[in-house]
């Protein structure tokens, strides 16, 4: 199992990186260049080509390395396990959930406002990071932490340090 994951660790990133660099490189010709007075002989295309090209080479390098590892593995008589998507998602459900609520948090912060979103986010994130069997004892402290942090940070940063935290719906109450 471990050996199996090892070459996958090269093949999958290799493919992703190579595809990404191709996508990046494909956008370079569309960049407007500046050819007026005092323009540099190397235009603003050169360095993106350089990085994109370097990334493509590295991606392919890792990919080929992975394929060779796989071949060696098969030759050595290893059996290739199939990746079980459902099991994978289940294993990582806390991580996936954390990303989802984090995305919701920042996405809705503008319209809804910092304070309500922070309360919801903190409460949810604390629970996600707590084993389910301890949830019962966590509800109250989590809520208290969420309430205090949201209000305190909002007051401190918005009114004392002039960080433009979104007001959102609080605007209707003049806060």
């Amino acid at each position: 199992m471990k050996k199996n994951a090892k070459y996958m660790m090269d093949i999958v990133p290799g493919i992703v990186i190579a595809l990404f660099s191709l996508w990046y490189l494909s956008m370079v010709p569309g960049i407007k260049t500046f050819t007026g007075m005092g323009s540099t002989p190397l235009t603003n295309h050169f360095v993106p080509y350089l990085w994109g090209g370097a990334l493509l080479v590295l991606g392919l390098w890792i990919l080929i390395r992975g394929i060779r590892k796989r071949a060696a593995f098969v030759k050595a008589g290893g059996t290739i396990e199939k990746f079980d998507l459902k099991k994978g998602i289940d294993e990582k459900r806390e991580v996936i959930l954390s990303f989802v609520i984090l995305a919701l948090y920042v996405g809705l912060m503008g319209p809804v406002g910092f304070v309500p979103m922070t309360i919801l986010y903190l409460f949810a994130q604390i629970l996600i990071l707590t084993p389910t069997n301890k949830w019962k004892r966590t509800y109250v402290p989590a809520l208290i932490v969420a309430l205090i942090c949201a209000c305190l940070f909002y007051y401190l940063f918005r009114y004392k340090l002039n960080v433009l935290l979104p007001q959102g719906i609080l605007k209707n109450f003049g806060l």
Partner: peptide
């Protein structure tokens, strides 16, 4: 406990990113 600490740290990070 980290299950309390880390979310609060993330909120502070978000504030930092906005600021």
């Amino acid at each position: 406990p980290k299950n309390y600490l880390l979310p609060v740290v993330l909120v502070l990070c978000a504030i930092g990113a906005i600021g």
